[in-house]
Design a protein around this nucleic acid. Structure first.
Lengths: 190, 190
DNA sequence: TTTCAAAAAATGAACGTTCATTCATTTTTA
DNA sequence: TAAAAATGAATGAACGTTCATTTTTTGAAA
Protein backbone atom coordinates (compact mmCIF):
# COMPACT_ATOMS: atom_id res chain seq x y z
CA UNK A 1 0.00 0.00 0.00
CA UNK A 2 2.58 2.46 1.17
CA UNK A 3 4.84 1.50 -1.72
CA UNK A 4 2.01 1.88 -4.20
CA UNK A 5 1.45 5.48 -3.25
CA UNK A 6 5.15 6.23 -3.26
CA UNK A 7 5.43 4.80 -6.74
CA UNK A 8 2.41 6.78 -7.89
CA UNK A 9 4.08 9.98 -6.74
CA UNK A 10 7.36 9.10 -8.46
CA UNK A 11 5.53 8.22 -11.65
CA UNK A 12 3.65 11.48 -11.38
CA UNK A 13 6.88 13.40 -11.64
CA UNK A 14 7.90 11.42 -14.70
CA UNK A 15 4.63 12.01 -16.48
CA UNK A 16 5.10 15.72 -15.99
CA UNK A 17 8.65 15.93 -17.29
CA UNK A 18 7.62 15.86 -20.92
CA UNK A 19 4.26 17.54 -20.54
CA UNK A 20 5.38 20.67 -18.71
CA UNK A 21 9.18 20.39 -18.53
CA UNK A 22 11.35 19.69 -15.54
CA UNK A 23 11.46 23.22 -14.23
CA UNK A 24 7.76 23.80 -14.23
CA UNK A 25 6.99 20.76 -12.14
CA UNK A 26 5.43 21.93 -8.89
CA UNK A 27 4.50 19.83 -5.88
CA UNK A 28 0.87 20.68 -6.48
CA UNK A 29 1.05 19.32 -10.01
CA UNK A 30 2.77 16.16 -8.86
CA UNK A 31 0.09 15.67 -6.23
CA UNK A 32 -2.68 16.10 -8.78
CA UNK A 33 -0.98 13.72 -11.21
CA UNK A 34 -0.56 11.09 -8.50
CA UNK A 35 -4.10 11.52 -7.22
CA UNK A 36 -3.13 12.65 -3.74
CA UNK A 37 -3.11 15.92 -1.83
CA UNK A 38 -0.05 18.13 -1.79
CA UNK A 39 0.59 17.47 1.87
CA UNK A 40 0.56 13.72 1.32
CA UNK A 41 3.78 13.83 -0.65
CA UNK A 42 5.52 14.95 2.53
CA UNK A 43 4.49 11.74 4.27
CA UNK A 44 6.60 9.81 1.79
CA UNK A 45 9.41 12.24 1.03
CA UNK A 46 11.18 14.81 3.16
CA UNK A 47 10.73 17.38 0.41
CA UNK A 48 11.03 18.04 -3.29
CA UNK A 49 14.75 17.47 -3.25
CA UNK A 50 14.47 13.98 -1.80
CA UNK A 51 11.67 13.17 -4.21
CA UNK A 52 13.71 14.16 -7.24
CA UNK A 53 16.84 12.46 -5.96
CA UNK A 54 15.02 9.20 -5.27
CA UNK A 55 13.56 9.24 -8.74
CA UNK A 56 17.02 9.70 -10.19
CA UNK A 57 18.37 6.77 -8.20
CA UNK A 58 15.45 4.65 -9.33
CA UNK A 59 16.06 5.38 -12.99
CA UNK A 60 19.78 4.72 -12.76
CA UNK A 61 19.08 1.36 -11.13
CA UNK A 62 16.59 0.36 -13.79
CA UNK A 63 18.90 1.47 -16.57
CA UNK A 64 21.96 -0.30 -15.25
CA UNK A 65 20.03 -3.45 -14.51
CA UNK A 66 18.62 -3.48 -18.01
CA UNK A 67 21.91 -2.82 -19.76
CA UNK A 68 24.00 -5.11 -17.59
CA UNK A 69 21.52 -7.86 -18.36
CA UNK A 70 23.23 -7.97 -21.75
CA UNK A 71 26.61 -8.67 -20.23
CA UNK A 72 27.77 -12.18 -20.91
CA UNK A 73 31.32 -12.95 -19.80
CA UNK A 74 31.77 -15.60 -22.46
CA UNK A 75 30.59 -13.72 -25.54
CA UNK A 76 33.07 -11.92 -27.79
CA UNK A 77 33.46 -8.35 -26.66
CA UNK A 78 32.06 -6.93 -29.86
CA UNK A 79 28.85 -8.83 -29.30
CA UNK A 80 28.68 -7.66 -25.72
CA UNK A 81 29.12 -4.11 -26.99
CA UNK A 82 26.36 -4.55 -29.52
CA UNK A 83 23.96 -6.04 -27.02
CA UNK A 84 24.60 -3.30 -24.48
CA UNK A 85 24.19 -0.51 -26.99
CA UNK A 86 21.01 -2.06 -28.24
CA UNK A 87 19.57 -2.35 -24.78
CA UNK A 88 20.54 1.16 -23.81
CA UNK A 89 18.94 2.66 -26.92
CA UNK A 90 15.84 0.55 -26.48
CA UNK A 91 15.58 1.55 -22.85
CA UNK A 92 15.43 5.23 -23.67
CA UNK A 93 13.30 4.86 -26.78
CA UNK A 94 10.72 3.10 -24.63
CA UNK A 95 11.06 5.62 -21.83
CA UNK A 96 11.38 9.09 -23.24
CA UNK A 97 10.38 10.34 -19.80
CA UNK A 98 13.47 8.76 -18.29
CA UNK A 99 15.73 10.31 -20.87
CA UNK A 100 14.29 13.79 -20.44
CA UNK A 101 14.46 13.47 -16.70
CA UNK A 102 18.08 12.33 -16.64
CA UNK A 103 19.16 15.06 -19.04
CA UNK A 104 17.58 17.80 -17.01
CA UNK A 105 18.42 16.38 -13.61
CA UNK A 106 22.10 16.71 -14.34
CA UNK A 107 21.85 20.44 -14.12
CA UNK A 108 19.04 20.68 -11.62
CA UNK A 109 19.55 22.64 -8.42
CA UNK A 110 18.96 19.42 -6.47
CA UNK A 111 22.23 17.84 -7.44
CA UNK A 112 24.38 17.98 -4.36
CA UNK A 113 27.96 16.91 -4.04
CA UNK A 114 27.08 13.40 -2.93
CA UNK A 115 25.01 12.85 -6.03
CA UNK A 116 27.38 14.62 -8.36
CA UNK A 117 29.56 11.54 -8.25
CA UNK A 118 26.50 9.40 -8.86
CA UNK A 119 26.13 11.40 -12.02
CA UNK A 120 28.56 9.10 -13.75
CA UNK A 121 26.88 5.97 -12.43
CA UNK A 122 25.07 5.67 -15.73
CA UNK A 123 28.42 4.97 -17.34
CA UNK A 124 29.21 1.94 -15.18
CA UNK A 125 27.93 -0.73 -17.56
CA UNK A 126 29.89 0.80 -20.42
CA UNK A 127 32.93 1.06 -18.22
CA UNK A 128 32.82 -2.60 -17.32
CA UNK A 129 32.61 -3.62 -20.96
CA UNK A 130 35.49 -1.36 -21.92
CA UNK A 131 37.79 -2.68 -19.24
CA UNK A 132 37.24 -6.21 -20.47
CA UNK A 133 37.75 -5.14 -24.09
CA UNK A 134 40.99 -3.40 -23.27
CA UNK A 135 42.35 -6.51 -21.57
CA UNK A 136 41.49 -8.57 -24.61
CA UNK A 137 43.18 -5.98 -26.83
CA UNK A 138 39.97 -5.64 -28.77
CA UNK A 139 39.47 -2.07 -27.64
CA UNK A 140 41.99 0.73 -28.02
CA UNK A 141 44.26 1.46 -25.10
CA UNK A 142 42.95 5.00 -24.65
CA UNK A 143 42.18 6.91 -21.45
CA UNK A 144 38.87 5.81 -19.98
CA UNK A 145 37.37 9.26 -20.35
CA UNK A 146 38.04 9.23 -24.08
CA UNK A 147 36.55 5.77 -24.58
CA UNK A 148 33.50 6.56 -22.50
CA UNK A 149 32.97 9.80 -24.39
CA UNK A 150 33.13 8.00 -27.71
CA UNK A 151 30.16 5.84 -26.81
CA UNK A 152 28.11 7.76 -24.29
CA UNK A 153 28.38 11.09 -26.10
CA UNK A 154 27.08 9.93 -29.48
CA UNK A 155 24.27 8.00 -27.84
CA UNK A 156 23.12 11.07 -26.02
CA UNK A 157 23.21 13.23 -29.13
CA UNK A 158 21.49 10.60 -31.25
CA UNK A 159 18.68 10.27 -28.74
CA UNK A 160 18.32 14.02 -28.48
CA UNK A 161 18.11 14.23 -32.27
CA UNK A 162 15.70 11.35 -32.40
CA UNK A 163 13.32 12.99 -29.97
CA UNK A 164 13.67 16.25 -31.91
CA UNK A 165 12.72 14.27 -35.04
CA UNK A 166 16.02 14.90 -36.76
CA UNK A 167 16.59 11.18 -37.19
CA UNK A 168 14.73 7.94 -36.58
CA UNK A 169 16.54 5.69 -34.17
CA UNK A 170 13.82 3.08 -34.35
CA UNK A 171 15.08 2.14 -37.84
CA UNK A 172 17.42 -0.84 -37.67
CA UNK A 173 19.57 0.59 -40.45
CA UNK A 174 20.17 3.81 -38.55
CA UNK A 175 20.93 1.89 -35.38
CA UNK A 176 23.42 -0.36 -37.13
CA UNK A 177 25.25 2.47 -38.81
CA UNK A 178 25.41 4.24 -35.49
CA UNK A 179 26.68 1.22 -33.57
CA UNK A 180 29.32 0.53 -36.21
CA UNK A 181 30.58 4.09 -36.25
CA UNK A 182 31.02 4.06 -32.47
CA UNK A 183 32.72 0.71 -32.61
CA UNK A 184 35.26 1.94 -35.11
CA UNK A 185 36.07 4.80 -32.81
CA UNK A 186 36.98 2.50 -29.93
CA UNK A 187 38.02 -0.76 -31.59
CA UNK A 188 41.68 -1.70 -31.80
CA UNK A 189 42.92 -2.11 -35.39
CA UNK A 190 43.69 -5.64 -36.49
CA UNK B 1 27.09 53.78 -24.03
CA UNK B 2 23.87 51.95 -24.52
CA UNK B 3 25.71 48.92 -25.87
CA UNK B 4 28.15 48.98 -22.97
CA UNK B 5 25.39 48.63 -20.44
CA UNK B 6 23.65 45.96 -22.45
CA UNK B 7 26.88 44.00 -22.64
CA UNK B 8 27.44 44.43 -18.92
CA UNK B 9 24.05 42.90 -18.22
CA UNK B 10 24.67 39.98 -20.55
CA UNK B 11 28.06 39.37 -19.00
CA UNK B 12 26.44 39.54 -15.60
CA UNK B 13 24.29 36.55 -16.45
CA UNK B 14 27.32 34.61 -17.61
CA UNK B 15 29.30 35.32 -14.49
CA UNK B 16 26.44 33.96 -12.42
CA UNK B 17 26.00 30.72 -14.34
CA UNK B 18 28.91 29.00 -12.65
CA UNK B 19 28.72 30.79 -9.33
CA UNK B 20 25.07 30.11 -8.50
CA UNK B 21 23.83 27.87 -11.33
CA UNK B 22 21.48 28.72 -14.15
CA UNK B 23 18.28 28.22 -12.21
CA UNK B 24 19.19 30.37 -9.29
CA UNK B 25 19.93 33.40 -11.41
CA UNK B 26 17.50 36.15 -10.49
CA UNK B 27 17.07 39.52 -12.10
CA UNK B 28 18.19 41.17 -8.90
CA UNK B 29 21.44 39.21 -8.93
CA UNK B 30 22.05 40.05 -12.57
CA UNK B 31 21.48 43.71 -11.81
CA UNK B 32 23.92 43.63 -8.91
CA UNK B 33 26.51 41.80 -11.00
CA UNK B 34 26.16 44.33 -13.81
CA UNK B 35 26.23 47.30 -11.47
CA UNK B 36 22.78 48.58 -12.33
CA UNK B 37 19.37 48.63 -10.69
CA UNK B 38 16.89 45.85 -11.28
CA UNK B 39 14.57 48.12 -13.20
CA UNK B 40 17.33 49.18 -15.55
CA UNK B 41 17.50 45.75 -17.11
CA UNK B 42 13.99 46.33 -18.44
CA UNK B 43 15.16 49.36 -20.39
CA UNK B 44 17.38 47.07 -22.45
CA UNK B 45 15.41 43.83 -22.50
CA UNK B 46 11.70 43.13 -22.60
CA UNK B 47 12.11 40.61 -19.80
CA UNK B 48 14.16 37.70 -18.50
CA UNK B 49 13.23 35.54 -21.44
CA UNK B 50 14.52 38.00 -24.00
CA UNK B 51 17.66 38.51 -21.96
CA UNK B 52 18.45 34.80 -21.84
CA UNK B 53 17.57 34.28 -25.48
CA UNK B 54 19.79 37.13 -26.62
CA UNK B 55 22.66 35.76 -24.61
CA UNK B 56 22.21 32.41 -26.27
CA UNK B 57 22.23 33.95 -29.72
CA UNK B 58 25.35 35.89 -28.82
CA UNK B 59 27.20 32.78 -27.71
CA UNK B 60 26.21 30.81 -30.78
CA UNK B 61 27.47 33.62 -33.00
CA UNK B 62 30.79 33.82 -31.21
CA UNK B 63 31.22 30.07 -31.27
CA UNK B 64 30.39 29.67 -34.93
CA UNK B 65 32.56 32.59 -35.91
CA UNK B 66 35.45 31.18 -33.97
CA UNK B 67 35.13 27.65 -35.32
CA UNK B 68 34.41 28.65 -38.91
CA UNK B 69 37.53 30.77 -38.79
CA UNK B 70 39.34 27.44 -39.11
CA UNK B 71 37.59 26.59 -42.34
CA UNK B 72 39.93 26.75 -45.29
CA UNK B 73 38.45 25.52 -48.56
CA UNK B 74 41.82 24.47 -49.86
CA UNK B 75 43.15 22.45 -46.95
CA UNK B 76 42.71 18.68 -46.86
CA UNK B 77 39.51 17.81 -45.06
CA UNK B 78 41.28 16.02 -42.26
CA UNK B 79 43.20 19.16 -41.46
CA UNK B 80 40.03 21.22 -41.55
CA UNK B 81 38.50 18.73 -39.16
CA UNK B 82 41.46 18.98 -36.82
CA UNK B 83 41.50 22.75 -36.86
CA UNK B 84 37.79 22.98 -36.17
CA UNK B 85 37.86 20.50 -33.31
CA UNK B 86 40.81 22.30 -31.83
CA UNK B 87 39.09 25.65 -31.98
CA UNK B 88 35.85 24.31 -30.58
CA UNK B 89 37.58 22.70 -27.62
CA UNK B 90 39.68 25.78 -27.01
CA UNK B 91 36.63 27.99 -27.18
CA UNK B 92 34.89 26.14 -24.38
CA UNK B 93 38.01 25.58 -22.29
CA UNK B 94 38.53 29.32 -22.30
CA UNK B 95 34.86 30.02 -21.63
CA UNK B 96 33.52 27.55 -19.13
CA UNK B 97 30.67 30.00 -18.57
CA UNK B 98 29.59 29.64 -22.17
CA UNK B 99 29.62 25.88 -21.97
CA UNK B 100 27.59 25.77 -18.77
CA UNK B 101 25.15 28.27 -20.15
CA UNK B 102 24.61 26.43 -23.42
CA UNK B 103 24.16 23.11 -21.66
CA UNK B 104 21.54 24.43 -19.31
CA UNK B 105 19.81 26.70 -21.78
CA UNK B 106 18.90 23.73 -23.92
CA UNK B 107 16.44 22.60 -21.31
CA UNK B 108 15.52 25.96 -19.90
CA UNK B 109 11.91 27.01 -19.82
CA UNK B 110 12.81 29.91 -22.11
CA UNK B 111 13.37 27.80 -25.15
CA UNK B 112 10.41 28.36 -27.39
CA UNK B 113 9.65 26.66 -30.65
CA UNK B 114 11.40 29.32 -32.71
CA UNK B 115 14.61 28.83 -30.80
CA UNK B 116 14.29 25.08 -30.57
CA UNK B 117 15.43 24.94 -34.17
CA UNK B 118 18.26 27.33 -33.33
CA UNK B 119 19.30 24.69 -30.87
CA UNK B 120 21.11 22.86 -33.62
CA UNK B 121 22.77 26.02 -34.92
CA UNK B 122 25.85 25.08 -32.96
CA UNK B 123 26.27 22.15 -35.28
CA UNK B 124 26.44 24.24 -38.44
CA UNK B 125 30.24 24.50 -38.70
CA UNK B 126 30.58 20.74 -38.22
CA UNK B 127 27.86 20.19 -40.76
CA UNK B 128 29.62 22.25 -43.38
CA UNK B 129 32.85 20.34 -42.90
CA UNK B 130 31.10 17.00 -43.13
CA UNK B 131 29.32 17.82 -46.34
CA UNK B 132 32.61 18.70 -47.97
CA UNK B 133 34.23 15.56 -46.58
CA UNK B 134 31.45 13.37 -47.91
CA UNK B 135 31.81 14.83 -51.39
CA UNK B 136 35.53 14.15 -51.30
CA UNK B 137 34.82 10.59 -50.16
CA UNK B 138 37.03 11.21 -47.17
CA UNK B 139 34.14 10.92 -44.76
CA UNK B 140 31.75 7.98 -44.55
CA UNK B 141 28.50 8.22 -46.42
CA UNK B 142 26.38 7.99 -43.28
CA UNK B 143 23.22 9.88 -42.35
CA UNK B 144 24.02 13.40 -41.21
CA UNK B 145 22.57 12.78 -37.77
CA UNK B 146 24.96 9.89 -37.21
CA UNK B 147 28.00 11.83 -38.36
CA UNK B 148 27.09 14.87 -36.30
CA UNK B 149 26.52 12.70 -33.25
CA UNK B 150 29.92 11.07 -33.64
CA UNK B 151 31.67 14.40 -33.27
CA UNK B 152 29.41 16.65 -31.27
CA UNK B 153 28.43 13.99 -28.72
CA UNK B 154 31.94 13.01 -27.67
CA UNK B 155 33.01 16.63 -27.47
CA UNK B 156 30.17 17.41 -25.12
CA UNK B 157 30.91 14.46 -22.88
CA UNK B 158 34.64 15.14 -22.87
CA UNK B 159 34.06 18.74 -21.85
CA UNK B 160 31.62 17.72 -19.16
CA UNK B 161 34.17 15.24 -17.83
CA UNK B 162 36.93 17.81 -18.06
CA UNK B 163 35.00 20.31 -15.99
CA UNK B 164 34.14 17.54 -13.51
CA UNK B 165 37.88 16.82 -13.32
CA UNK B 166 37.56 13.32 -14.69
CA UNK B 167 40.04 14.08 -17.44
CA UNK B 168 42.32 16.92 -18.50
CA UNK B 169 41.48 18.25 -21.92
CA UNK B 170 44.20 20.86 -21.73
CA UNK B 171 46.77 18.08 -22.26
CA UNK B 172 47.76 17.84 -25.90
CA UNK B 173 48.03 14.05 -25.67
CA UNK B 174 44.46 13.71 -24.45
CA UNK B 175 43.25 16.08 -27.14
CA UNK B 176 45.05 14.19 -29.89
CA UNK B 177 43.77 10.82 -28.80
CA UNK B 178 40.31 12.25 -28.65
CA UNK B 179 40.46 13.88 -32.08
CA UNK B 180 41.84 10.69 -33.62
CA UNK B 181 39.15 8.49 -32.12
CA UNK B 182 36.43 10.75 -33.48
CA UNK B 183 38.08 10.85 -36.85
CA UNK B 184 38.16 7.08 -37.10
CA UNK B 185 34.46 7.02 -36.39
CA UNK B 186 33.64 9.24 -39.34
CA UNK B 187 36.53 8.70 -41.79
CA UNK B 188 36.02 6.59 -44.87
CA UNK B 189 38.35 3.56 -45.01
CA UNK B 190 41.07 3.65 -47.56
C1' DT C 1 -20.38 -10.25 12.87
C1' DT C 2 -20.95 -5.65 14.58
C1' DT C 3 -19.46 -1.66 17.25
C1' DC C 4 -16.57 1.90 18.37
C1' DA C 5 -12.66 4.37 19.99
C1' DA C 6 -7.86 5.03 19.30
C1' DA C 7 -4.22 5.35 15.91
C1' DA C 8 -2.68 6.20 11.35
C1' DA C 9 -3.13 8.35 7.04
C1' DA C 10 -4.60 11.99 4.24
C1' DT C 11 -6.17 16.56 3.32
C1' DG C 12 -5.78 21.34 1.61
C1' DA C 13 -6.01 26.07 3.35
C1' DA C 14 -2.67 29.10 5.13
C1' DC C 15 2.09 30.80 5.65
C1' DG C 16 6.33 32.65 4.43
C1' DT C 17 9.54 33.26 0.90
C1' DT C 18 11.24 34.22 -3.62
C1' DC C 19 11.08 36.44 -7.79
C1' DA C 20 9.87 38.96 -12.22
C1' DT C 21 8.01 43.07 -13.31
C1' DT C 22 6.13 47.84 -12.83
C1' DC C 23 6.19 52.74 -12.20
C1' DA C 24 6.40 57.04 -9.41
C1' DT C 25 10.38 59.44 -8.29
C1' DT C 26 15.17 60.90 -8.74
C1' DT C 27 19.38 61.60 -11.25
C1' DT C 28 21.89 62.49 -15.36
C1' DT C 29 22.36 64.28 -19.91
C1' DA C 30 21.55 67.52 -23.65
C1' DT D 1 15.22 73.68 -18.14
C1' DA D 2 13.42 69.92 -20.72
C1' DA D 3 14.22 65.18 -22.05
C1' DA D 4 16.27 60.83 -21.27
C1' DA D 5 18.01 57.45 -18.29
C1' DA D 6 18.17 55.12 -14.06
C1' DT D 7 16.44 53.82 -9.65
C1' DG D 8 14.48 50.64 -6.16
C1' DA D 9 10.35 50.17 -3.31
C1' DA D 10 5.98 48.16 -4.14
C1' DT D 11 3.06 44.56 -6.31
C1' DG D 12 1.23 40.33 -7.30
C1' DA D 13 1.89 35.71 -8.62
C1' DA D 14 3.99 31.18 -7.83
C1' DC D 15 5.75 27.80 -5.05
C1' DG D 16 7.48 24.61 -1.20
C1' DT D 17 6.19 23.40 3.09
C1' DT D 18 3.44 23.11 7.44
C1' DC D 19 -0.17 21.70 10.47
C1' DA D 20 -4.94 21.85 12.39
C1' DT D 21 -8.61 19.21 10.88
C1' DT D 22 -10.91 15.33 8.63
C1' DT D 23 -11.09 10.69 6.90
C1' DT D 24 -9.79 5.98 6.97
C1' DT D 25 -7.99 1.96 9.10
C1' DT D 26 -7.32 -1.16 12.87
C1' DG D 27 -8.44 -4.46 16.22
C1' DA D 28 -10.38 -5.47 20.65
C1' DA D 29 -14.76 -5.93 22.99
C1' DA D 30 -19.53 -7.08 22.78
Amino acid sequence: MVQDKKQAILKGVLKLVNRVGFYHISMKMVAEEAGVAAGTIYLYFKGKEELINELYTMIVSEFNESVLGAYDQDSPIKEVYRAMMSRAVLFYLNNKDYFSFIEQYTYAPFLFKENQEQNFMLLLPLYKMMRAGKKQKMIKNLPDAVLLSMVHGPMNTMLKMHFARKTDLTKATVQNKFYNACWEAIAAHN
